[in-house]
Design a protein around this nucleic acid. Structure first.
Lengths: 345, 345
DNA sequence: ATGAAAGCGCTAACAA
DNA sequence: TTGTTAGCGCTTTCAT
């Protein structure tokens, strides 16, 4: 077992080897004030000679763990990978290690994960599209520096990075309306919780859809299928929409992954895209950019979101009392080949 | 800041509240021997009343951290998500928390991540398709219970779970040959390291391809583009193959994600699939199953791999001295719509 | 069966 | 600038 004659090298060994105190070593480790250049050199030499690595576990008990936790609802959604890229880019050069926890797609699961991060004394956490109650989020944020991504509704205690989903949905509707579509349907992620209805991106997108339909004089054509933001949800949603009396000429899926399911269902129904029906997504995932698919979508600049998030978290860790900031990024339309003017029937 | 009037509840608080010793509480926490049912009840009551949660950081200093690290080379590859599902399924009910570290696509990056896991006293680690030297892998495994996934070449010190890539590549070649293809090209992940050439799945697949080509009497048609296992690699690889004198009638991409790039390049070149050219991948990712794509591929049963891996790791954590085990799973062919007989030219 | 006490490896007051 | 020392919250001998 991991317990040979080669016991782990500790700070004491380093101190002994360098002929200094453990305090001195500790100071050098943390670039803290109070170590002469000469001392630094000796300690560093000892560190590399002994191949010493500080135990993050022990550090965590007193100081920092140099660990940042990222909670992801769904590791399969490529949009989240974009965010992670941005986070890693910012944190790559630092001493922080990013650790991801995924597959927590319900409130108990989320609670489990966030508790685990707190138990492990993480220095900061990034919560991506969390569905926990506002109260819980704030409790977490009071315990550990927190940045919430992709959820509307500001807080005084945690920073917030979100995309303007309301505008984004409007971009798609406007695009389709400009092409001449009227029967523009939408597939949303079903939501009942009152708070989440005002804070979750999916709900905001649905709101934006409704608003934009009215703004474009298409109020009477509002047509929504309520499923989930998954491929399966897109598939079922499309089936529902096709089964309704008047078939839509365009479907605005609330997320690219949903659009995948829609395309699947349409192919199965023998409908061509965009010949018979236009399809648009949301997120501009790599999948949407994929040539043979070429999905019209909305770009949220996941990379940029991630980079912003990481920077804000570092700032908050450095000064936990700083006032909470809200960053709202503007989405852009990415028209591709799945949308075209409707065929005159 | 995380330092209000509400100091974190510790084991001492619980002990005090229950009127017992901290030792007793510790025993109850770990279901250790030496606590009467009555004592258990009292302690558990105190725990839930005070809403106590043990600090994983502190535990790590003495005992376990109840943390399992998973190193992933690429979070975008859906195959890895399948593996994770399997892992999470096995570990979901346990006290262990799975933490993922990603984006370590080179040896220094890998070293950084594995060191970070060791520094954090993780109880076990799962290394997925690592490219570190055998020596380094063994050093890691001697320090912490380890299971290596997707790398051939056994070790006495860590468990091993891998797919039979050699056979898998043969399945694709056999399938294409049976359809009547002769000019079957392959896109591989470039590899030069001598050890990795015998241990990495990508190299084994390329070997399997060559072997199967010869076995099918197609030795003279062996045609390989050497890029990387990424979408971009597939795109470039296909471009290369198309630029060569005799165009292949089928392309066997070493991974589904590579096939995505291939399809992209073919669409761009105005070639239809499978009309002009057949395409096959490897991994059976969700993307491959996606209706409008419907990619012929090889199923590695990622879920099963993950489940096996997690089980083996738990066993090894329970008894680190148990002999190392090797699990080799058999891949299966999943024929879909991207492969068809070649057009008689 | 229970508890007292000694650390685990590190950081941070405080003294020198 | 340096070192001494007291913990951080938990686990684990070892008495009782």
């Amino acid at each position: 077992m991991p317990k040979g004659p080669d016991r782990r090298v500790t700070i004491v060994d380093v101190a002994k080897h360098a002929g200094v105190s453990t305090t001195a070593v500790s100071k050098v480790l943390r670039n803290a004030y109070g170590a002469s250049p000469e001392m630094q050199a000796r300690v560093r030499a000892a560190i590399s000679e002994l191949n010493y690595r500080p135990s993050a576990a022990a550090r965590g008990l007193r100081g920092q763990t140099y660990t940042i936790g990222v909670m992801l609802p769904d590791i399969r959604n490529p949009f989240f990978a974009d965010i992670l890229d941005g986070v890693n880019e910012q944190l790559g050069g630092t001493d922080y290690q990013v650790l991801i926890a995924s597959s927590c797609n319900d409130e108990p699961g989320e609670a489990h994960v966030t508790d685990a991060m707190i138990d492990r004394n993480m220095d900061g956490v990034i919560l991506i599209a969390p569905l926990s109650s506002r109260q819980r989020l704030e409790r977490i944020a009071r315990t550990v520096p927190t940045v919430v991504v992709g959820r509307h509704g500001a807080s005084a205690v945690h920073d917030n990075v979100a995309d303007d989903d309301f505008t984004g949905a409007g971009l798609i509707v406007g695009h389709l309306a400009a092409l001449g579509h009227q029967r523009i349907a939408h597939i949303e992620h079903h939501e009942t919780d009152a708070v989440r209805l005002t804070e979750m991106p999916n709900a905001i997108r649905a709101d934006g859809y409704r608003h934009a339909m009215h703004a474009n004089g298409l109020g009477e054509f509002v047509d929504i299928a309520s499923t989930t933001y998954t491929q399966q949800g897109g598939y079922l949603g499309a089936k529902q929409l096709l089964a309704r009396g008047q078939r839509p000429t365009a479907i605005f899926a609330g997320a690219d992954i949903v659009a995948m399911g829609v395309l699947d269902a349409l192919a199965e129904a023998g409908l061509s895209v965009p010949g018979d029906i236009s399809v648009a997504g949301y997120d501009n995932t790599t999948f949407a950019a994929f040539g043979p698919i070429s999905l019209t979508t909305v770009d949220q600049a996941g990379h940029q979101i991630g980079a912003n998030t990481a920077r804000m978290l570092l700032d908050r860790i450095a000064d936990p009392t700083r006032p909470a900031a809200q960053v709202k990024l503007s989405p852009t339309l990415v028209p591709r080949r799945t949308t075209a003017p409707p065929v005159p029937s």
